[in-house]
Design a protein around this nucleic acid. Structure first.
Lengths: 222, 222
DNA sequence: CCAGAGCGTCAAGGAACCGTCAGGACCGTC
DNA sequence: GACGGTCCTGACGGTTCCTTGACGCTCTGG
């Protein structure tokens, strides 16, 4: 959760309340900082106060929408403005006018996150042999029983599952799982491919689903 | 990653930052150099500053779009211009105005690469006799059974398949498969053509699909 | 017929890559 | 401060792949 507000008092009050409700909160005081923070922390929802010192709030919205579909809830004092229409047109997901009830705000945030998850265009469940990979719940089961994966293992498997049957190049795996700075750490691939096989394959030394193409990359084979 | 910018200072700063984030960076200072570099290095994303000395940035975009779908992120100082609309209409994938936050730029580049990858599930399938060449999955099957190819063999075959029925000059094969430094290693061509024939032709000594034009190049014949 | 150029074929050596295991660093929890 | 989980790292053996050289073939022009 990213909270963007230029009034320190309100920002602190919001952060305290949100943390009390279990959110992990990052704050920004202006538009540029907001875009920055969103890019680095990948929040699951943005709470955005219009009327910032540097950028117009609408610019922040379109700046975010350029590269992410994170839900945006706009907070504004202007009760009757056309801002509301404009903000929603630009891609905001909801709109709350000050003064607001904290309960209502919480409900709207929860709703925004829930809608975003439901709207995820991913075919939520991928079946591969006796494996059931649930992309929405981030779970995988082998022959009906859940298998525990570490976050990195899951990121690897998810990437392969989203490209089922397609060869995923080594560089893409490294970039999307570890980040662009790890493009040459091919060793990671071998370690984690081995771990996934140990957990998911019947015979880890003769894999039937997680296949390697030497020098190219990996494929999850249906 | 190809960075196109005519201001040496900015280009260097960008390159340093991008390399720090793990990108492999090639730079070009003008439009012609950009088109050149894109053709030889096949970058996975292009970061293009408008306002180049020789060509208009829009010409670079359409020049690239003539033969590649590589994602293009445009960088521009003109904040309110119609340039943005024009650039996006010509096929640019995203647009960032100066001044920009480096984090945001990084996020947009990552997003551009990811989108390009996800938009690629086009069933690019080339049928040649009893061969089925799946360009997306990087696979080839003969009479229904998969054939294992090495990375170099695949690069060779893919190039021919993308130019199905057309003669591909020897120099182009060497440049695109092995790189510009191998333009005279014509021996490689014979070795790998032979390997491909052994794996893909019914009678490798009397090829029907992978044909040689002596002194000129190779053709994949439907 | 001969010489030379270009091509196809085969095999060997070394480089690059892969799978595997295990130890140590790091982090948050209890 | 101990503990469990996770991630990174190094070492080793085995495999695959690339490169290179040698040799024979065909075709062409002299």
């Amino acid at each position: 959760m990213l909270v963007v507000d230029d009034e320190p008092a309100l920002a602190r009050a919001l952060a305290i309340n949100l943390r009390a409700h279990g959110w992990e909160v990052v704050t920004a005081a202006d538009g540029r900082g907001a875009l920055d923070a969103a890019a680095t922390t990948h929040p699951d929802v943005v709470l955005l106060d219009l009327g910032l010192p540097d950028l117009d709030g609408t610019e922040v919205i379109s700046g975010l929408r350029g590269w992410t579909t994170v839900p945006i809830v706009v907070l504004s004092a202007r009760q009757h403005g056309e801002d509301k229409v404009e903000a929603l047109d630009l891609g905001a997901d909801d709109y709350v006018t000050k003064p607001f009830a904290m309960n209502e705000l919480m409900a709207r945030l929860r709703a925004a996150v829930r809608r975003a998850q439901e709207a995820a265009p991913t075919a939520a469940l991928v079946q591969v042999g006796d494996l059931a990979i649930d992309l929405a719940r981030k779970r995988v089961a082998k022959a009906g029983v859940d298998v525990r994966l570490t976050p990195t293992e899951w990121a690897f498997l998810e990437l392969l599952a989203r490209n089922l049957g397609r060869l995923v190049p080594r560089e893409q795996v490294l970039r999307e799982v570890w980040g662009p700075a790890y493009l040459h750490e091919t060793h990671y691939l071998r370690v984690y491919a081995a771990q996934l096989r140990r957990k998911l394959e019947d015979d880890p030394s003769a894999p039937r689903h997680l296949l390697t193409s030497s020098g190219l990359g990996y494929t999850l084979e249906p």
